[in-house]
Amino acid sequence: MRIAVPPPRHDAVASGLRDGRPRRRGRRVLAVLLALVLVLLLAIGGVVAYLTSSIGGGIARIPDAFRGIDAGSRPATFGGTTFLLVGTDSRAEAPTTGIDAAPGVDAGSQRSDVIMLGTLAPDGEHASVVSIPRDSWVDIPGRGMNKINAAYAFGGAPLLIRTVEKLTGVRVDHFGVVDFAGFTSLVDSVGGIDVQVAQATSNAGVDFRAGENHLDGAQALAYVRQRYGLPNGDIDRAARQQNAIKALLATVQEKATTDPTALYAFATSVGDAVSVDDSLSNTGLVQLALENRNLRGSGVAFVTAPVAGLGREGEQSVVYLDERRSAQLWGAVRNGSVAQYADLNPTEALSATPS
């Protein structure tokens, strides 16, 4: 059964995150794009080679993320670099990502809760972040039609990569999983972030007033976790997550020129939160940062894959993507014109003031 719904609001971004426990161990993981953010921020900071080479060694690597993927069946490269980033809904007591990940903990043993494509455009001056709803009803290679987040549980990183490449026609160059718990320390390392809030809300004992709010790490965590009390629940919460990422980029860009020590503190915190595929070496990070040294936070476009409607497949609630508009979006990712796509499709772009 399929139920038609209007296109998502301008602040709508796909989400499926759930509230977790407040302590370090056992918090759920969230794809806050730190692999992409690391490259963006190091490029912005103007301290590329030193920071990247020294910090890159502290980032955990994921082995065999591209295992068994037939090179001949993959989409062609387009000159840019694309990261597939996920957060899982694991309830593991130990971290599943970052340098503190416990031996034997497999981040791919759970369904992915957040799926995002972060792309650095070929021109070195633009980037995009595209969210794919976790409940999107898609064809998973070898498994048939299912929710896209099931691909990670069925076959880990390799199957999710194949699924996303088949859906989008976009070649995935690198894969990352990010631990949500590191978000607090990252925000604190740069002295907090400033976010705009559409209306007064509260969550986890933190009050957010309408207008600009300066948030420390704990407050920012409450901000990105809020779902209840927002007009569109999970969709608004996902918009807040992207809004926080955007604010973090802006803050670090400012710190890069006024307080290099804070920039270094931020970058050294990344290893506590992120794991990336083992094909992304320290040298590769340096090269990416150099290639994108002219990138600024204002050059990053945030959008969500267009939704045609909601419905049910058996017992599952699912999201049906708009095939025509999705094809336009994926084409824009490949040719580096996501910002132009967002201008033409404002209902899919991140609002300046999400709920």
Rank of each mutant, 00 (worst) to 15 (best):
R225K: 10
D234S: 10
D11W: 14
L38R: 13
P346Q: 07
L321W: 05
A14T: 05
A153L: 01
Q226G: 05
F175A: 02
P354W: 09
N149G: 03
E291V: 02
F154K: 04
L38E: 14
H174D: 03
A332P: 08
G169W: 08
P95D: 05
R67Y: 10
T304D: 06
T97P: 01
D207P: 08
V276C: 03
G155D: 04
D135K: 07
D11A: 10
R21G: 14
G331Q: 13
A14H: 08
G336V: 00
L288Y: 13
A127P: 07
A222Y: 04
A238K: 09
H214I: 00
R334Q: 06
V129W: 06
N335E: 13
E125G: 10
F154Y: 15
R21Y: 11
Y152M: 06
G144R: 07
R61S: 04
G57R: 15
T261I: 14
A262N: 11
A267S: 15
S202W: 07
G108W: 07
A157R: 10
R74S: 01
V105W: 06
N213K: 05
S269M: 13
Q287E: 11
V114G: 12
A121F: 10
R162N: 02
L280A: 09
N292S: 04
D139S: 10
D322M: 02
A244N: 10
A102M: 06
R74D: 03
Q110G: 09
I62P: 07
S136G: 03
R28D: 00
A238H: 12
D19A: 12
R28K: 13
D139V: 02
T201E: 08
R334F: 03
A247G: 02
V130F: 09
M145K: 14
V164K: 09
